[in-house]
Design a protein around this nucleic acid. Structure first.
Lengths: 146, 146
DNA sequence: GGTAATTTGAAAATGATTATCATTTTTATT
DNA sequence: AATAAAAATGATAATCATTTTCAAATTACC
C-alpha cells in the first residue's frame, strides 16, 4: 500500500537551491510564489511545478512546515530548524499588512497548560495562527476609525 | 470609505433556506459545495455564487464561522450558537473530529494583555482559531501512535 | 559510456472561490 | 395595487493557487 520509501531520491540543482534558500533565510515564512519570484529575480529560474514538488518533499521529510492561512490565499512555508522550531511557538499574523511575528516566550507554555487543564484541549502550535493587528497597523487603523 | 452598514439586507428565499439548513443541522461542518449539493438533491436549487455570498454574509454577521479544512481543499462553515458573543472568546477546534470549544474564561484577558505588552500585537479574538486535539481525540491519537 | 530511474519544466488541467452583469426579487413609496 | 429604487440571484466567465501531464533533461549506478 505504502511504497513511497522504495523510491530513490535523485539530488538536483533545484533541490539544493531551495535548501540553500532556507538555510540562508531560516526565518522567512513564504509562499511558493514568493520563492519562485526570488529565484527568477536572482537569475536562477526554477519552474513553479518544481518548487511545489520540492516543497512537498521537504514538508514530507519534516524539514519545512506548511501553514494554511485562514484567509485561504495560499499556503506558506517555513523552515523548521531544530533549535527554534516553529512547531513550538505561536504565530501572530497581522490581518492588515501580513507581517508574521514568532511568539517565542515562556508565557506560551502557561497558555498551553491552561488550555490543557481547564479546557481539556491539546494545542497544535504549528497549525495555529493568531490573527490581529501589529503595532503599526493598529495605530493606522485607530486613525481611520469612524 | 467603509459603507457596508449603509446597505439594507433584503431577505430572500435562499437566505432563509440556508438559515434553516443550519438551524436543522446545528453541528455540521460543511463546505460550500456540500451545501450546494444538499439543496440540489432536495429539489431546491440554489446557485453556487449565492451560497458563497450568503455564507460570507453569515460569517460577517458572526452567525457562522469559517474554518480551513485540514487538507486545504476548501473552507468549511459551521454554525456558531448565538448565546455567547463569539467575538469575545477564542475557539478551540479539534483537527480530528471537528468539535469546537468556546474558550470563555478570564485567562484569555491575561493572554491578550501579555501579547499586547510583550509582542505589541492586538489579538482579534473573533478571527482567531486555535487548532489541536480535543480530549477524546488526543486519547485516540495516542493509542494509534507508532 | 550506457541505461534505467527520477526529476524537471512548460503548458494544460483542476478546483475552489470571486467577479460580471442581465434578470429577478424585495422593500419602500405613491 | 402600481411603481421605482435598491439589492439579491444565477449562469457564466475569470482568477488564482496548486496539480497533472509528458517529453526532455538529469542523475545514480553498472
Amino acid at each position: 500500500m505504502e511504497n513511497k520509501e522504495c523510491k530513490k531520491n535523485y539530488r538536483t540543482r533545484q533541490q539544493d537551491a531551495l535548501e540553500n534558500y532556507f538555510r540562508i533565510n531560516p526565518d522567512v515564512c513564504v509562499t511558493a510564489d514568493e520563492i519562485y519570484l526570488f529565484f527568477l529575480n536572482s537569475g536562477e529560474k526554477i519552474g513553479k511545478a518544481t518548487i511545489y514538488r520540492c516543497l512537498d518533499r521537504m514538508v514530507e521529510s519534516g524539514a519545512v512546515k506548511k501553514f494554511l492561512s485562514d484567509s485561504g490565499d495560499g499556503a506558506m512555508y517555513q523552515l523548521i530548524d531544530g533549535t527554534g522550531g516553529c512547531d513550538r511557538h505561536f504565530h501572530l499574523k497581522c490581518t492588515r499588512c501580513g507581517a508574521v511575528i514568532h511568539m517565542d516566550c515562556e508565557f506560551m507554555d502557561e497558555f498551553e497548560r491552561h488550555i490543557m487543564e481547564h479546557h481539556h484541549f491539546r494545542v497544535d502550535n504549528g497549525r495555529t495562527i493568531i490573527y490581529g493587528l501589529c503595532e503599526k497597523c493598529a495605530h493606522v487603523r485607530s486613525l481611520t476609525e469612524n
